[in-house]
Amino acid sequence: MNSIILSFENVTFTYTQEDASVKPAVQDLSFSIQDGEWIALVGHNGSGKSTIAKLMNGLLFPQTGKVSAMGQLMAEESLWDIRSQMGMVFQNPDNQFVGATVQDDVAFALENNGVPHEEMVLRVKESLHQVKMEAYLDHEPHHLSGGQKQRVAIAGALALRPRLLILDEATSMLDPQGRMEVIETIRELREATGLTVISITHDLEEAALADRILVMNAGQKQLEGTPDEVFLSGNELTTLGLDLPFSMRMTHLLQEAGVQLQGEHMTEDELVDELWTFYSRK
C-alpha cells in the first residue's frame, strides 16, 4: 500500500539559464511523497514553492535531476497521463474559473479528457457533492464567494478522480471564513477518500494539519518532518520569515513569562485545555 506517488531526485531549475547572475529557483531538491499522505510545503514568498508545483505536473521541466509521478518519469510522452491523475488548484479564485457556470467549470477537465456525457453528468454531481456545492450547479462565478469558487475549483480537480491534489496557496486570497471552508473541505475529503494532498502555504496553522511539513528557503529544502518536529525549531522558522501558529506563539510567550506550561500546543483548543486545567493539575 505504501507506495511512492511522487518523487524529486536532485532537481534543479533556473528560470533564465542564460543569465548567470540568476540563482536557481529550485536547487538540488530531493523528496518523495507516499500514497495517502498530506504534505505541507511552506516557505516565504519567492522560496520556490510555486516552481516546485509546476515541476510536479510538467508545466516546467527540471534542467538537472528527475521528477517521477504515478510510477512514471515525467516526460513529454507521459505528461498528459500523469496530469489526468493529478488535480491542481491555484491561488486566485477568479483566474482559474473557466466555465460559464459552476457545472460547466467542473466538467471542463472531463470534457478535455473525452469522458462520455452520461458519465460526466454523474461525476459533476459527485464532485460537487464532495465539496458541498451541489446546490450551486447553475451559479455564475461572479455570484460566488472566494471560498465557494475555490471549492468549485477543487471539485473541478476531483472530477477526474485524481490520486493527488496539489493546492498552491489556494487559501491565501480568502477571508478567514473562506479559508476555513476550504481547509475543512480538504480535511473531510482526506477522511472520506484517503486522497494524497500537497498543500503549499505560508500559513503554518494550515500546515499544522498535515502529516509532514517541508520547509523551503531560497530554493532549497531547509527542514523536513512532522509538524511537531518542525515547530520545535521555532526560532529557525521565524528567521525564515514564517509566523508560528498563534497558539504556539502564545505558549512561548507564556513560558517566557514564567508560566510552567507543558510542551507545545499546535491548536488553540489544546492550549485552552491546558490553561483551564492548569491550577487543578498543579
Binding site: N57, L59, N92, Q96, A109
Partner: peptide, 10 residues
C-alpha cells in the same frame, strides 16, 4: 493564469 489552469486540467 487561466492558460495555466486550463493546461493543468488537460
Amino acid at each position: 493564469d487561466l492558460a495555466t489552469a486550463m493546461e493543468v486540467r488537460g
